[in-house]
Amino acid sequence: MSTRPIPTPALTKKDFVSDQEVRWCPGCGDYAILSQVQKVVPALGIPKEKFVFVSGIGCSSRFPYYMNAYGFHTIHGRAPTIATGIKIANPELSVWVVTGDGDALSIGGNHLIHALRRNMDIKILLFNNRIYGLTKGQYSPTSELGKRTKSTPMGSVDYPLHPLSIALASEATFVARAIDTETKHLAEVIERAARHKGSAFIEIFQNCNIFNDKAFDNFKARDVRANRIVRLEHEKQIRFGADGEKGFRINHCELEVVDVNDGIPESELIVHDEHSRAFVAYMLARMDYPDFPVAIGVLRDVTKPTYEALLDDQVMEARKMRKPDTLQALLESGETWKVG
């Protein structure tokens, strides 16, 4: 049997712009992310009607309204569950979850973990602005300790958690990080996630210019980023600095920043391996300014069968072993007896 792809007219960014007026605050980092997603998805070769964008609650969760695709703006924290139901029901759909730090890591933490560990083939974009925006400025589970907000006038006493640590620990098969303002890199990472078969998780540092402005500027600002951001590239040495002079060694199970100008041989610098399941990815994920530069790019990209594929396989296998029951056979599936 030959299956020829049905030619579809090439899609463009415009095809994914909905007629809804975008209602994020002017200057919000969400705009840049929306724009990159709208740019990436037409190029994936997937018909428009197969895209479904699912979100929870929060500023970022308005996202589906602005995508001209199927969209579901659900309830707080539960987007991964609804996305899971959609994907199980129809594995042919390209299912995306758009969420924020409060939505995914606080109220919806449990669902995030389980969607990832099942390796559902869904793409999760976590807009991390380290604040609650829609409820007007309370600290979030990724806010730094001591954060002064409306609900914590003396500073928060909660330690923050690292979204990437959670994704890695949940056995997500694709884990990456990007920054709203690094648009080209962001688009690359989104495209990689989209093409990955399995659970893909991207933490996107997103500026909330109203309630947590410049939260990431201490490492992402133009004048400092060369020394404070490190881009991960598969099978390449992990290097940063104005001339790429810096890199990492593993020293006593810890990462150590080293400078080749200090006479460290280049051969000692670690090489990034996206396919590794080792702990290095955790260490890279947890690097934070000022002790370390902040890593962006793909931390892990591994493959294993997805949940929906395993479930489909069981259905196929069961069908091979047993023909579907007729209604009559179903009714008579217990022990029956006749009267009269």
Binding site: V52, V54, F72, T74, R78, P80, T81, I82, A83, T84, G85, I86, K87, I88, A89, N90, L93, N110, H111, I113, H114, L311
Partner: peptide, 21 residues
């Protein structure tokens, strides 16, 4: 689908319904 909790079970049902099952 044995869900991770009661809420997820309902979420999965809603998603499956949205997708036509």
């Amino acid at each position: 689908v044995q869900a991770e909790d009661e809420i997820a079970a309902m979420g999965i049902v809603i998603g499956a319904s949205f997708a036509g099952k």
